[in-house]
Amino acid sequence: MKRHELRARAVQAVYQMDVGQVAAVEAVSHVLEGDESALLTGQREFVTRLVQGVGFHTDELDELITHHVTGWRLDRIAKVDLAVLRLALYELLFEAQTDVATIMDEAVELAKQYSTEESGRFINGALAKLLPVIKERRTNGE
C-alpha cells in the first residue's frame, strides 16, 4: 500500500476511536482487516504508530486546535474532519522525518476524499493557523 492509503486507514481508525470509543489497537485491526497479506514490512507498524500517537496525544492536539483554530469548537467540527486534523497535526508535531508540505497536502486530499471539498479548505486553513506552533516545535525538537 502507498503512504496515502496507509494514512487513509489511520484516519479511519482515529475516527473509530472517537466515534466508537474503541482502543487504538482494535481500531487499527479493524481498518486493516483482510489486508494483512498485502501489507509490506513496516506498513502495519506505521499505521499503528500514527493511530496510537493520536490516541496518546489527543488532549494536547485538541488543546492546540482549540487555541489556534479560532471560531471553531471541537464539537462543531465534523468528526471526519477532526480525525484528519488530529492525524495531520500529530504527524506534523511528532513525525519530523516527513516534510510539512507532504503532510499538509495529504491531509487536504484525505479531507476531500472522505468528507467534502469545503473540508479540504477547512483543513488547509486550520493547519495554516497551526504552522507557527508546528515550526517552533520542529525547530526546538520538541
Rank of each mutant, 00 (worst) to 15 (best):
L82M: 10
Y90D: 10
D99V: 09
L87D: 07
G71D: 01
V84D: 06
A107C: 10
E109M: 12
L74D: 00
L87R: 03
L74M: 00
D75K: 10
Y114T: 03
L87Q: 10
S115W: 10
T66I: 01
V80N: 04
L92F: 05
E95F: 14
T98W: 07
A101R: 13
A88V: 11
F94M: 06
E118L: 14
Y114W: 04
T66W: 00
Y90R: 06
S115N: 12
A101F: 11
R76F: 07
A107K: 02
A101S: 13
T66P: 00
A96F: 10
L110S: 08
A101G: 12
Y114D: 06
R76L: 06
F94K: 08
R76H: 09
L89A: 04
T70M: 14
V100E: 15
E95C: 14
E109Y: 12
H68D: 04
H67K: 11
R73K: 09
L110P: 05
V69M: 00
G71Q: 01
E95N: 14
A111S: 15
V100S: 15
A88K: 03
Q113D: 14
V108W: 04
I77Y: 01
E91L: 11
D99K: 07
L74I: 03
D81H: 04
R86C: 12
E117R: 11
E109L: 14
W72S: 04
M104V: 15
V108E: 14
Q97N: 13
M104S: 12
H67P: 07
H68E: 08
L92N: 05
L87F: 08
R86S: 11
V69I: 05
T70D: 12
A83E: 06
T116Q: 05
R73N: 05
A88N: 08
L93C: 02
A96E: 13
E117L: 11
R73I: 04
R73F: 04
V80P: 03
D99G: 07
R73C: 04
W72P: 03
A88Q: 06
L89W: 02
I103F: 09
T70V: 13
T116H: 06
F94Y: 11
L82N: 03
Y114S: 06
D75N: 13
L74P: 02
D105P: 05
L82P: 03
E95R: 15
L93F: 02
K79D: 15
T102K: 13
E106A: 15
E118Y: 11
A88L: 11
A78E: 15
Y114I: 00
A83H: 02
T70Y: 08
Y90C: 08
I65N: 03
G71L: 02
T102F: 14
D81V: 07
I103M: 09
G71P: 01
I103T: 11
S115R: 08
A78Q: 14
A83F: 06
L82H: 03
G71A: 01
E109R: 13
V80C: 07
T70A: 11
D81F: 04
V69L: 00
V84W: 00
E109Q: 14
A83S: 10
K112H: 04
A88G: 10
V100H: 13
E109N: 13
R76A: 09
L74V: 03
M104L: 12
T66H: 07
A78R: 14
L87Y: 05
V69R: 00
V80T: 10
I77W: 01
L89R: 01
Y90A: 07
Q97A: 15
A96C: 12
L89N: 03
L110W: 08
K112Y: 01
T66C: 02
A101T: 15
V100Y: 13
A107F: 06
T98L: 09
